[in-house]
């Protein structure tokens, strides 16, 4: 039962991404990520998007920035992202 629900959520999350105004590159990045993350992570992302559809652009930027930071030797990139995240979370608390 839970597996079926998770699959349904994953499917809905994919549809949400595909129907969004993101670029094809950004959509593919999300779809690739959704395909490889855990069920808990799928639910967390889906839940967040359901509560606030406007957050997708912030999350997408976060995703792209992290991808760049992970593949970079520049540690400061990651610190900047963490700082941005804290600011965003604090502004929504």
């Amino acid at each position: 039962m839970v597996i079926k629900i998770i699959n349904h959520i994953k499917e809905d999350l994919n549809k949400t991404i595909i129907a969004s105004l993101l670029t094809e590159e950004q959509k593919n990045l999300w779809l690739d990520l959704i395909n490889k993350i855990t069920d808990e992570e799928v639910v967390a992302i889906f839940d967040t998007l359901q509560n606030d559809s406007n957050i997708l652009s912030f999350l997408t930027k976060n995703l792209q920035d992290k991808l760049q930071a992970i593949n970079s030797k520049d540690e400061s990139l990651w610190q900047t992202i963490t700082k941005d995240e804290e600011e965003y979370i604090n502004s929504n608390s």
Binding site: L33, D47, L67, N92
Partner: peptide, 16 residues
């Protein structure tokens, strides 16, 4: 809401 965002951001990090 902030907690959910935090979970999501962590999920993105973990996945990446």
């Amino acid at each position: 809401y902030a907690s959910k965002i935090k979970i999501t951001l962590n999920a993105i990090t973990a996945a990446l």
